[in-house]
């Protein structure tokens, strides 16, 4: 680099990072100075703080490559998968604000209790109801089967709870099952190998069910894998309405 030319922004400054500290519903933001680095992710920032400033900082991560869904946090008040979120993309000025995921109880610092999130997967009957035993033939499902395509559109969910944290309906109604659980239920409903579509429709028709969704679309907007739980929820609404009007539950595979 020629003399006198400006240094890259990343060498010029450090970050002021406000990190939420506390547990049991009590706590506040603590500010740290973190050196700016090229291609730095939010998870890199949090890790730097723990390794160099405060080893007591508690956070959760595993794979660091956007596969496991462990490291989601609120970054500048928006839910993000922190291992794949570059500082460049979310920085406003020199300041970052990092907090635990919204809509979930906080265990400590940046770690939330994920039990309510996963309990709702069970409540939504988002589990496989098998039709076959070990002696059965394989289910022949063509890649262009419409039900398979519906299932495929939601199958890459990594359970990161970003959609759950983004959802204002969850915030207003703690009983609401949430986008991820409902999307999983819709995926299974469209699985030809799942035999209890009625159980799924019953589960998503309760007081916390899919009909609470206002189609605001925050789940689709923030999903890091660019899935669209809102569309899946609309599918469940259609399926429950069709069963109400015609008595027909799960469509048979074509």
């Amino acid at each position: 680099m020629p003399d006198g030319s400006p240094k890259p922004e990343t060498e010029q400054r450090s970050l002021r990072v406000k990190v939420w500290r506390g547990s049991g519903g009590e706590g506040g933001y603590e500010t740290f100075e973190v050196p700016r680095q090229p291609s730095q992710t939010i998870l890199d920032v949090v890790t730097w703080i723990q390794q160099h400033s405060d080893p007591n900082l508690t956070y959760r991560f595993a794979c660091r490559v956007g596969m496991c869904g462990s490291c989601a946090m609120m970054v500048n008040d928006e839910p993000r998968w922190t291992c794949r979120t570059h500082v460049d993309r979310v920085l406003k000025g020199d300041e970052l604000r990092i907090a635990p995921l919204r809509n979930l109880p906080v265990i400590k610092d940046l770690v939330t209790d994920m039990d309510p999130f996963f309990d709702k997967w069970v409540s939504a009957e988002a589990r496989h109801h098998p039709t076959a035993d070990r002696h059965s033939d394989f289910a022949a499902i063509t890649p262009d089967d419409p039900h398979r395509l519906e299932a495929s559109s939601g199958i890459e969910c990594i359970n990161c709870a970003v959609c759950y944290a983004a959802c204002d309906t969850v915030a207003g109604n703690p009983d609401y099952l949430g986008p991820a659980a409902l999307q999983r239920a819709w995926t299974l409903f469209n699985d030809a190998r799942d035999e209890d579509g009625d159980a799924i429709l019953d589960a998503v028709s309760g007081t916390g069910g899919c009909h609470n969704c206002h189609s605001m679309g925050s789940c689709a907007h923030y999903c890091p894998n660019e899935l669209n739980p809102m569309t899946a929820i609309a599918g469940l609404k259609r399926a429950t309405a069709r069963r109400f009007l015609t008595g027909r539950g799960k469509r048979k595979p074509s």
Binding site: S205, G206, T207, G209, H211, N212, T240, A241, F244
Partner: peptide
């Protein structure tokens, strides 16, 4: 918090 029957009644 919505009951499914009320949801259908509102659409109808």
């Amino acid at each position: 918090m919505i009951d499914f029957r009320l949801y259908m009644l509102q659409r109808l």
